[in-house]
Amino acid sequence: MTRTPVSASHVPPAEAPLSATQSAWQSPWVRAWIALIVVVLAVNILMVTLAVVTSPGLVVDDYYERGRAMEESIRSRAAANKDHMLEADIPPDLRAGQPKNLRFFVVDKVGQPVTPDAVRLFAYRPSDAGQDFSLPMLVEAPGRYGAEVSFPLPGLWDMLIEVTEGEASYRLDKRLYVNP
């Protein structure tokens, strides 16, 4: 058995060092990282633009007074729970644009009907303050009040019923979902 000499041409060449003409931009890893950064920046710019251009209508001019009114509502509800029982009868199938009768009941702690000075219903749309409205609730019987309500848009609504009795006012609030 004879051996053939191995020539230098059969030996794989050692990898040559990067020359000055090759740059890091040719690496797929560098390109992937740059593409990821560009995508993240583009999404952030899009979100900031949408936040500035579309106004959700959630900011109110009298935010401090509204906060104080909410605090008063919580206190009056606690006081009303001791002296009065407030309950709303809301139909479960509320639909946008269709009038429905909402009823409200006020009784004292022993169950006798209460006749307050005024009962008013307020409807607030959290996403669009321009759609907010209020209605007086009319006396149907002692301690029972009603109003025919038609919500203009589907979605979530905050309903507040305010009972005024002399200097005192009591409130009942509920969150409603109005079907399309």
Rank of each mutant, 00 (worst) to 15 (best):
S150N: 11
M159F: 03
P154Q: 14
P136M: 00
R125G: 10
P126D: 04
M159Q: 07
D128G: 13
A129K: 07
D132R: 05
P136I: 00
S127H: 08
V149C: 09
G155L: 07
L135I: 01
Y124A: 10
Y145H: 09
Q131P: 06
E140S: 13
P142D: 02
G143L: 02
D132N: 10
E140P: 04
L153W: 12
V149Y: 07
L153Q: 15
L153H: 12
S127D: 14
P154K: 15
R144W: 00
L160R: 01
E162N: 05
L135F: 01
G155C: 06
V139I: 11
L138N: 06
S134Y: 02
Y124D: 15
Y145E: 02
P126N: 12
I161Y: 00
A147Q: 06
G130A: 01
R144M: 03
A141I: 12
L135W: 04
W157E: 11
P126K: 10
F133C: 10
E162W: 02
R125Y: 12
A147M: 06
P142V: 07
P126R: 09
D132P: 05
S134K: 09
E148F: 14
A147T: 08
L138V: 07
A129G: 08
A141L: 13
G143N: 02
W157Y: 09
D158M: 06
F133V: 05
V149D: 03
L160C: 00
S150I: 09
I161W: 02
P136L: 00
V139Q: 15
S127M: 13
G130S: 08
V149H: 06
V139T: 12
S134I: 00
Y145W: 03
L156I: 14
E162Y: 03
V149I: 14
F133D: 13
P136T: 00
M137L: 10
A129Y: 03
D128M: 10
S127T: 15
S127E: 13
D128V: 14
F151S: 05
L156P: 11
I161K: 00
E162H: 02
S134F: 03
P142S: 01
V139L: 15
A147E: 06
F151H: 10
L156G: 12
D128N: 13
M159K: 07
D158R: 15
A141Q: 05
L135D: 03
M159L: 12
P152G: 07
Q131M: 08
A141R: 08
M137F: 05
R144G: 01
S150P: 07
W157A: 04
M159Y: 02
P154D: 08
S134T: 02
P126C: 11
Q131G: 09
G146N: 05
Y124G: 05
D132S: 07
M159R: 06
G130T: 10
V149F: 11
F133R: 06
L156Q: 15
G155P: 07
E140L: 15
R125E: 13
F133M: 09
S150R: 04
G143K: 00
L138F: 09
M159W: 01
V139D: 12
P154G: 09
V139H: 12
A129C: 00
P142K: 00
L156A: 14
L160K: 01
A147G: 14
G146K: 06
